[in-house]
Nucleic acid binder design. Structure first.
Lengths: 239, 239
DNA sequence: TATTCACATATTATCTGATAATATGATAAA
DNA sequence: TTTATCATATTATCAGATAATATGTGAATA
């Protein structure tokens, strides 16, 4: 039986048109190729460029508008908003930004926030976390250890560890910062697989402090973990 | 000349259908009336309910999806995502949440973050802010003083003041937190008009420290301003 | 009985073409 | 010079169609 022709490939993805248009325009905006100063193509032009119907273009525009990147108005057309309005904590925007910014700059910006957020989160987790939440943190740590032992990727477990701490801090807005951490860990683990095992003991110290309900120790253990990671990454990036 | 009939008012806004559908569904999701456990109405049903075409419904769905509230898939339909995925820092989501949560709870959550972010931002502003940026902070403060003198609403100036400090800290992710502050100030100024003049001197102390490039003083002045505001609000809410 | 496979079906994804609303700029009037 | 009127360009909304795809059903099989 003749294998089905795999893709139409007129020129690019035809199956996920919407996602493709969103990502393509989003990236162009973050790069600055489309800016508030420049005129934005109108729906019809975008449709022609992407080979998409107006529906798809309009849905993509609404998606980008919801992220604060653009706004659209009858007769006026579409325009790029000032970066001030961009939802930088949106996972997509975060990734687009990461892929276009100088790595060192992005990373220092990111860690500045993590150092602000996570020690306090660890502190609160030690105070407010209930048994189940602390168990979740412990489980994530166990998964990290197991990954280190079997030398498999522990990035998911690492993320779970940090997210579980945010969750145990009982502040929904804090939990939101998980996106930041996700990107940070993703970069870290892509740059260096081994970083992982090195930092395991520091994670353990955070966990132990939380279990012991020692909030100050939890905070400083987390601060220590992050500073060391940051320094480690800086060395890596520089070389 | 007969005045034009002002609105079709079949039942609700007909002019901004898209925005209406987004707000309506968004609110229902935040309230929990639509949850991950429950089945979500399909596009056709939503269209019937809102008296809107499928295009409008689909655009609204994409807008909510971009905020992490829902996801949609062929054949499976639409489903509400876990609150973990919600973009809580999105201005709309923030407002929906504010209007449905117990005020005291929302407020304490909010201030926990502000106390985390803003003192450090003030500290960084004192170190990194350039002349123009510091001038912007000063201008905002002048506008606040003027508003206090003329007893007009200074909420815009207040917001400008805090945003200008975030901007002077030179970290785009930090600047993002401006949305939080906007909601916080909005609530504060709605609860009490006079709070404004009372806190003017504390704002001044922050400004002065930044001008003097005294980072530690700027940080503690900001911390002081926020704690006092929080306590003031707590008293107001309790009564 | 349990597992695998083929297939009908329900729902979103995309396309097409039309009408309505509205902000802008041009034109005319004051 | 300012104000009022109007044509126009662009998005907003509607309507109806076809395509793609995940799910469950039932048949075939071990």
């Amino acid at each position: 039986m003749a294998q089905q022709i795999p893709a139409p490939l007129g020129r690019g993805p035809k199956r996920n048109l919407f996602a493709h248009v969103v990502a393509s325009l989003g990236l162009r905006i973050i790069k600055g190729e489309l800016s508030p100063a420049l005129p934005f193509p109108k729906e019809a032009d975008l449709g022609a460029e992407f080979g998409a119907s107006r529906s798809v273009i309009r849905e993509a525009v609404k998606s980008l508008a919801a992220r604060g990147l653009i706004a659209s108005q009858t007769r006026t057309g579409i325009r790029v908003l000032e970066p001030l309005n961009w939802n930088l904590l949106d996972a997509e925007v975060l990734n687009w930004r990461y892929s276009t910014m100088p790595q060192a700059e992005f990373y220092s910006e990111l860690f500045e926030i993590r150092l602000l957020i996570e020690p306090e989160a660890a502190r609160l987790a030690a105070i407010r976390g209930n048994a189940a939440e602390i168990a979740t943190i412990a489980q994530a740590f166990a998964a990290m250890s197991e990954a280190a032992r079997t030398e498999t990727s522990g990035v998911a477990a690492d993320l779970s560890f940090h997210r579980a701490i945010l969750a145990a801090a009982h502040n929904a807005l804090l939990l939101q910062m998980g996106n930041l951490i996700a990107v940070g860990l993703d970069i870290a683990h892509r740059l260096s697989r081994e970083s992982f095992a090195v930092f395991l003991p520091m994670h353990q110290r955070v966990l132990d402090a939380i279990i012991a309900r020692d909030s100050d120790a939890a905070g400083s253990a987390m601060r220590h973990l992050l500073s060391e990671t940051q320094e480690f990454m800086n060395r890596l990036i520089r070389t």
